[in-house]
Write a protein that binds this DNA or RNA. Structure first.
Lengths: 238, 238
DNA sequence: CGTCTAGTTGAATTCCGTCAAAGCGGGTGG
DNA sequence: CCACCCGCTTTGACGGAATTCAACTAGACG
C-alpha cells in the first residue's frame, strides 16, 4: 500500500521526517497532495500553548518534532498532565466540539496543523486515514488506562521508577552519546513531573534524591538522568 | 442514512434494544444482516468474567444490557478499575493482539459477541462502522482522561462526590420510582467503588458516612444512594 | 558579582491506609 | 419463625506516607 515515490514528488509531505510513522503513512500520492494543501507547518517555542482547555476545537495536528503535554486542572487550580505527545503522534480532538485539555509545547516543537473542519472532511472521505487514526486512538486509550493504574494504585517511589523507565524508552532512543537509553535529558521540569504523576514537586525531588542515594540512578544535571541499575528500577516499578 | 425498515426485517439486530445507540446504528439492512450472522448473544451473570487481562484478544462485543467493569492490577495485587461499560457501549480491543484489561459483569448482563477476527474484517470493509467506532473511542479517551484528574489530584471527599454525581447520571436515568436521578441503586460494592477511585474500602465507607452525616446524601440501603443536596455535592466535586 | 528561578532539604501536619473489632442483613437450616 | 452464620460494611485507633510550609542551595544570566 505504501508508495515508492519518495523522490518523485517534491511536495512538503514527501520530505516529512515522520512521513512513514504518522497517520499519513499509507496514503497515496493524490491523497498526500490534498492533505498537503490543507495543512500548514508551525513552529512552537518551548512553553508556548497551542490549544486551550474548553475552547472550541478548531485545530488538529501531527507532531513532527518536539514533545508536548496535554493537561487539565481542578477547580482549585491543581494541574494534572494527561499525556505526553511525541513526534509522529496525532494531536487534537477530531469530530468534537471542544478541546478537552490544554496543549503546550515542552520543548521547541514543529507541528503540521490542520483546520479541524478540513481534516474531519478529509478523514471521512478517506477510510484508510480514519483507520490509522482509529488504531492510534485505541493504542492511546490503552496507554492512558495503564497510566490510571499508576495514578490510582502506586506510591511515590513506584511512580517515579515507572516514569523514569517510560522516559528512557521514549526519549533515550535518539542517537545519543550514551550507550543505549541509559542516559537522557528530561523534557520536563520537576513541577511538570509532579503534574504527570499526581504528586507534589517536593515529593518528586525527595524520591529522585532517594533513588540516587540508593544507587539506582544518577543526576549529573538538573534535567539529566542516568539509569544505573535498570533491573532494580524495573523491580520497583513492578 | 438511517433506514426506516424496522418492521420489514425480522432479524435479531432489528429488534435489538440498543440498535439505535450502538455502533451498529447507521448501518443499512444488508450490513446489519452480515453483522447479525457473525455475532451471537450471550448472557452473563453478575460477577462472571468474559475477558482476562493479557490473554489473546479473541472477542469484542456490544453491551445490550447490564454494567461491566474493565480492570487491571499492580504487581502486588491491588486492583484498579479502568472504566465502566454501559448498554450500547462497545467492549474489547479491536485491531490488537492482547486484551489490556480484565472484563467482568457487575450486574447480570446481556452482550452481543463477535470473534475479533470477524469483527475486524467487517469493520475494515465498512468505513461507516469504523467511523462510529472512532467517535466512540475518542469520547472514551476523553472520559478516561477526565478520570485521570480525579485519580491524580482529588482527595477522598472530592472523589466520592464526583463518583456519586457520575453514577446518578449513568444509572439514575431509567424509569425510576424516584423523581429524576436523585435516587439510584449502585451496581458496585464498596470494594469496587474503592477500586474505581484508587482508595481503600474503609476510606470509601468513612467518606460516605461523612456525606450522610453532613446531609448531602442518604443511604437507605447498602447499595442505595439518595442525593439530598446535589448543589453541595457538585460544589465539592469542583 | 548579584539576582532570580528551579530545585533540594527539613520539620510539622494531615490525610489516608492498615489493623482490629463490632454491626448489619440476607440466606439457610433447624 | 427464629437462630445462626457468613460476607459485606462500618467504625475506631494508630501509624506512615505524602503534603504543606519554610528555609536554604545551586545554577543560569545579566
Amino acid at each position: 500500500m505504501d508508495s515508492p515515490l519518495l523522490q518523485r514528488s517534491s511536495s512538503f509531505c514527501q520530505a516529512c521526517a515522520i512521513r512513514n510513522r504518522a497517520i499519513c503513512a499509507d496514503l497515496d500520492d493524490g491523497e498526500i497532495a490534498i492533505l498537503n494543501s490543507i495543512g500548514r507547518r508551525r513552529m512552537l517555542a518551548a512553553g508556548e500553548q497551542i490549544m486551550w482547555e474548553g475552547e472550541e476545537a478548531i485545530l488538529v495536528a501531527n507532531v513532527i518534532e518536539g514533545i508536548l503535554k496535554l493537561s487539565t486542572q481542578t477547580a482549585d487550580g491543581k494541574e494534572q498532565i494527561l499525556g505526553l505527545v511525541y513526534p509522529a503522534d496525532f494531536l487534537g480532538r477530531p469530530f468534537g466540539q471542544t478541546t478537552p485539555y490544554g496543549v503546550e509545547a515542552l520543548t521547541d516543537a514543529h507541528v503540521c496543523v490542520f483546520q479541524r473542519a478540513d481534516f474531519d472532511r478529509f478523514a471521512r472521505e478517506h477510510p484508510r486515514l480514519e483507520h490509522k487514526l482509529l488504531e492510534r486512538t485505541l493504542s492511546e486509550l490503552d496507554r492512558t488506562r495503564r497510566w490510571m493504574l499508576l495514578l490510582g494504585r502506586m506510591n511515590a517511589e513506584q511512580k517515579l521508577a515507572s516514569f523514569l523507565l517510560e522516559m528512557s524508552e521514549r526519549v533515550g532512543q535518539k542517537g545519543c552519546t550514551a550507550p543505549g537509553r541509559e542516559q537522557f535529558e528530561l523534557p520536563l521540569s520537576r513541577q511538570q513531573i509532579a503534574d504527570v504523576l499526581g504528586l507534589t514537586i517536593e515529593t518528586v525531588s525527595r524520591q529522585l534524591s532517594k533513588l540516587r542515594k540508593d544507587g539506582l540512578i544518577d543526576l549529573p544535571a538538573r534535567r539529566e538522568i542516568v539509569i544505573v541499575a535498570r533491573d532494580r528500577l524495573e523491580e520497583l516499578a513492578g
